[in-house]
Amino acid sequence: MSAEAQTCPALDAKELDRLRGLCRQARIDLLRSIANAGAGHTGGAMSLVEIVTALYFRVMRVDPARPDWPERDRFILSKGHSSPGLYAALAARGYFPKERLSEFDVAGGMLQGHPDMLKTPGIDMSTGSLGQGLSVGIGMALAGRLKGLNVRVFVLAGDGEMQEGQVWEAAMYAGFHKVSRLVLIVDCNSIQLTGRTDETLSLAPLAGKLEAFGWRCVECDGHDLADLVPALERAVAVEDGPVCVIARTEKGHGVSFIANRVEWHAKAPTPEQLAQAIAELEGAK
């Protein structure tokens, strides 16, 4: 498949339905992989499902047959602990067979709890230590400019992650130097490990902070593909500086007993809970 061929059918009802179906399946797949491992960051993996689905199935120019294609768009999961959501999307997109999702967090498997670019096809940068992805994304964007390639770079951070100081070193650089073709997406699921982000160390006003650093910000509903996809497409079209897409999301989105609960930050479902979650997700068709 050529990279151009994947670009963008109209975002009509049919296309939205296709994307929603992919998201539903991704949630089932990621929950299975976490349950299989008995470990994993369930809540944050479920909040980013629409974001990675929109990117890999619609927005990004990639070729799963050539994961190291130099002109591909880049994606950095700066909130690396949410990897099960990304792995589900990569498997669905064809980077590796879906059966290999069972290797998540298993000794000797290729799918680490935090992504390893040397082990997993489709991972552009190993991540896990929060706050580091945006800097690397800036380097990739600068490299694209130096090489004259139209490489676009997407960095997905968590809202809690925005408390890390390095994020703001990077934001200051990208804003001041107007690094373009660089999109920071913040998965604003409002919950971090110990509690609600607003009660731990509030980021408000996040858009105001980034704008003060020279960024443009777009806010959207991170689960409503009809809102999210256009926001991402608009962001990446901006040619004269970095853009942040602030995606309002819900931790554990899609399953009633997981959604918006602090305790599901890093808890794996039991077999019974998995069955119940899958039934809910399949019932939502």
């Binding site: 940068m125 580091q132 800097s135 994304g137 800036i138 990077a170």
Partner: peptide, 12 residues
């Protein structure tokens, strides 16, 4: 911190 991250991105 940003310095070495940006360097990593260029190396990648």
């Amino acid at each position: 911190q940003n310095l070495f991250g940006v360097g990593a991105g260029l190396a990648l």
